[in-house]
Computed example of a mutant assay.
Amino acid sequence: MREKLLRLPKVIDATGYSKSRIYALIKEGAFPAPLKLGDRAVGWRESEIEAWIASRQPSMKNASLSATAESRTAQ
């Protein structure tokens, strides 16, 4: 089975990040690098984007739980 490649608009939709934020994260080594498809075209492996999103979810849940606990404490 072939790996599906996502173009930038799909990566933006999947992550919720802007183009500039995605490329800044790539530069920091914190986001999967794209594959060069041609002179002016790149794509990302769908599995790498899905794995990156999945790796972010536990920390997002912890941040959400912390905020909820803090708001309850403040009441």
Rank of each mutant, 00 (worst) to 15 (best):
K61W: 08
T15N: 08
S47H: 03
L65H: 06
Y23T: 05
I12M: 15
A33Y: 01
L6G: 09
I12T: 07
A63S: 12
P34C: 01
I49S: 03
L35Q: 02
S47L: 04
S71Y: 12
L35N: 00
A14Y: 06
E70R: 09
A54Q: 13
I22V: 14
A14K: 15
Y17M: 12
Q57M: 11
M60Q: 14
R72E: 11
P9A: 06
A51I: 00
R72P: 04
S55K: 09
A69T: 05
L65I: 11
K61T: 11
L5G: 10
I22H: 04
T15H: 12
A24P: 01
K36W: 00
R56D: 00
S59L: 14
P58R: 10
S59I: 14
T68A: 09
N62R: 09
G29C: 10
R56I: 05
L8A: 13
Q57R: 14
A51V: 04
I53C: 05
G38K: 02
K36S: 09
L35G: 00
L25R: 07
Q75A: 14
R45N: 00
F31H: 03
K27P: 04
E28N: 10
S55A: 15
L65Y: 01
N62V: 08
A30D: 12
A24Y: 06
R21T: 14
Q57Y: 07
E48I: 02
S71P: 02
T68D: 08
A24W: 03
A63Y: 02
R45G: 04
K61Y: 09
T68P: 00
L6F: 03
E46N: 05
K10P: 01
A74G: 03
W52Q: 04
N62K: 11
G43K: 07
R40I: 05
L65P: 03
E46D: 10
W52R: 05
R7S: 15
D39E: 14
K4G: 11
V42N: 07
D13R: 13
I12S: 07
R72G: 06
